[in-house]
Amino acid sequence: MNTKEIEILLDKYFEALTTVDEENILRSYFQREDIADHLKSVQSLFWLIERQKAEKTEIDHEERLMEKISLKKEKGLHQKRLFYFASSIAAIVLLFLSIIYFNTNEKPVPPAKYSPEEIQLAMIQTTNALNYISLKLNKGTSQLYHLQKFEPALHTLAKNLSKLDREIEKVNNQHNP
C-alpha cells in the first residue's frame, strides 16, 4: 500500500469512517520503520494500540474461578435446601399447635357436680349480691321524689295562665264592642 492510499485511510480513520479491516491495515503499516516523515506524527498512537492489543492477564483465572463457583454452588444449594426443609417443618408444627390450641379452648365446659351445701351457699351469696345491687339502685331512685314538686307548680301555672286568658278576652271585648 503506497503513502497516498495510507493518507486517504488516515483521513477516514480520524473521521471514524474506516472499517475494522482498514484499521488493521493502518496499524500494520505503522509498525514499519520506513514510513514517510509527514506520517510519523501519529505513528506512536498505532504503536500504543498494537501494544495494548497484546496485553494479557498472567493469572490462572480458571483455577480461581472453578474454586469459587463450585464451592459456592454446593454450599449455597445445601444451605438453601436445609433452610427450606427446616422452615417447612416449623410451619407444620405451628399449624398443628394452633389447631390443638383453638380446639381445646372451644370445647364447652362440662357441668360440674356440687354438693347441696355448696349450692345453698351459692344461692345465699347470689341473693346477697342481688340485694346489695337493688339497695344501691333504690337509693338512686329515692332521689326522684323531687319530681313530685313539679305537679303543684304546674297547677298554679295553669291557673294563672287561664286568668291571663280571661283578662285578655276582657280587654279585647272592651276595644271591639
Binding site: 495494548q52 496485553e55 494479557k56 492477564t57 498472567e58 493469572i59 483465572h61 480461581r64 474461578l65 469459587k68 463457583i69
Partner: peptide, 23 residues
Amino acid sequence: FRLAKKFFNSVDDADDAVQEVFH
C-alpha cells in the same frame, strides 16, 4: 482484563476485576 486495566491502570486491580466479573 484489558478493559478493566483501562479503568484502573493497574494489573492487580484488573485481575481482581476479571474474577469479580466472572463471578
